[in-house]
Lab assay of single mutants.
Amino acid sequence: MTTFKLIINGKTLKGEITIEAVDAAEAEKIFKQYANDNGIDGEWTYDDATKTFTVTE
């Protein structure tokens, strides 16, 4: 398992979430479901060097 981080730069929600996932594809699926569940819709980026996803509304 690898640790992945999501940085949320939303209009109403900001913060960071860290999860353990098998790979970046699994982490992205989990993070996008979390964002969808919380009404966050924005532009996604991923930095493989730091294993960090960012979503900006």
Rank of each mutant, 00 (worst) to 15 (best):
M1F: 10
M1L: 14
M1W: 14
T2E: 12
T2I: 09
T3E: 12
T3M: 13
T3W: 05
F4Y: 09
F4N: 00
K5C: 05
K5G: 11
L6F: 11
L6P: 00
I7R: 05
I7P: 00
I7F: 07
I8S: 13
N9T: 03
N9I: 10
G10V: 11
G10T: 12
K11V: 15
K11C: 02
K11Y: 13
K11H: 10
L13M: 13
G15W: 09
G15C: 01
G15S: 06
G15K: 09
G15T: 14
G15M: 04
G15R: 03
E16C: 03
E16Q: 05
E16K: 01
I17G: 03
I17E: 13
I17A: 12
I17K: 07
T18N: 08
T18V: 07
T18H: 08
I19R: 12
I19T: 08
I19L: 09
E20M: 04
E20N: 04
A21T: 10
A21Y: 14
V22Q: 07
V22K: 08
V22S: 10
V22L: 12
D23P: 03
D23M: 13
D23C: 02
A24Q: 04
A24E: 03
A25H: 14
A25D: 13
A25F: 13
E26K: 08
E26V: 12
E26Q: 10
E26R: 04
E26F: 11
A27Y: 00
A27L: 00
A27S: 13
A27K: 00
A27T: 06
A27R: 00
E28Y: 10
E28R: 09
K29R: 09
K29P: 12
K29C: 02
K29M: 07
K29G: 15
K29L: 08
I30P: 06
I30F: 12
F31G: 15
F31H: 03
K32G: 08
K32M: 11
K32Y: 07
Q33A: 09
Q33P: 03
Q33G: 07
Y34L: 09
Y34W: 09
Y34C: 01
A35F: 00
A35C: 03
A35S: 07
D37S: 04
D37N: 08
D37R: 08
D37I: 14
D37H: 06
N38F: 14
N38L: 13
N38W: 03
N38T: 12
N38D: 08
G39P: 05
G39A: 06
G39V: 14
G39D: 04
I40F: 09
D41V: 01
G42R: 00
G42F: 00
G42T: 00
G42Y: 00
G42P: 02
G42H: 00
E43S: 02
E43M: 06
E43V: 12
E43L: 05
W44E: 02
W44D: 00
W44F: 09
T45Q: 10
Y46R: 09
Y46N: 10
D47I: 11
D48Q: 15
D48V: 05
D48H: 06
A49Y: 11
A49H: 14
K51Q: 07
T52V: 11
F53I: 07
F53W: 09
F53Q: 05
F53D: 00
F53P: 00
F53M: 11
F53L: 13
T54M: 14
T54E: 08
V55W: 02
V55P: 01
T56H: 04
T56W: 03
T56N: 08
E57L: 05
E57R: 01
